[in-house]
Amino acid sequence: MKPALREQILTIIAEIPAGRVTTYGRIAAMTDGGTPRLVARALRDLPEGHDLPWFRVITASRRLADHPGAVEQRARLVSEGVLFDGGGRVASEILWP
């Protein structure tokens, strides 16, 4: 991945407000040539100890992606007041931007 694209992705993730979520696709659409998979890759490659709100990025179906950090992701979102319905989806009203 080009460093400029990675920087765009990380900058966008840093801007997601608490209590809101966005999708891999929405982030990709805000970049110059990004794709949802590249957004996922940028998140996967984050170094330990970073302070980006990675947990605010979800799938287009408004669910958490299936990954090892999903339990922690859900807990962090719930602590910010994000609610999940019976199908594990968040309300479309909290999608950012």
Rank of each mutant, 00 (worst) to 15 (best):
L95V: 06
F55S: 06
G86R: 10
R56P: 00
D85S: 07
V90A: 08
A70S: 10
Q73K: 09
E93W: 08
G87Q: 14
L83Y: 08
L52C: 01
A60K: 14
I58D: 02
E48R: 11
E80G: 05
L46H: 06
G88F: 00
L52V: 01
D85P: 07
E72L: 10
R76G: 12
P47K: 13
T59A: 13
R56G: 00
W54S: 07
L83H: 11
G88K: 03
R63S: 08
R62G: 03
D45L: 14
P47Y: 07
D51E: 12
Q73A: 14
R63H: 07
D85Q: 09
G81H: 02
G49T: 03
R74M: 02
V90N: 06
G86F: 03
A70D: 06
I94P: 02
T59W: 05
A70Y: 04
A75S: 03
A65T: 10
R44M: 12
V57I: 01
L46P: 03
F84H: 01
R56V: 00
P68L: 09
V78P: 06
S79E: 15
V57M: 02
P68W: 10
S79R: 12
R56T: 00
H67S: 12
G81P: 03
G69H: 14
V90L: 09
L52E: 00
L46E: 06
G69M: 13
R89K: 14
R44V: 10
G87E: 15
S92M: 10
G81D: 05
I58V: 14
H67E: 15
R74S: 05
D85A: 07
R44E: 14
V78D: 09
F84M: 02
H50P: 02
A60G: 15
G86K: 09
V82N: 08
G69K: 15
V82D: 10
G87W: 11
R62Q: 08
Q73I: 02
T59K: 12
P68Q: 09
G69N: 13
W54H: 05
V90Y: 07
A42E: 11
G69P: 02
H50V: 01
P47V: 10
H50D: 08
E72C: 06
E80K: 05
I58H: 03
F55K: 01
A60I: 11
P47C: 04
S92D: 14
V57W: 00
A42K: 07
L83G: 12
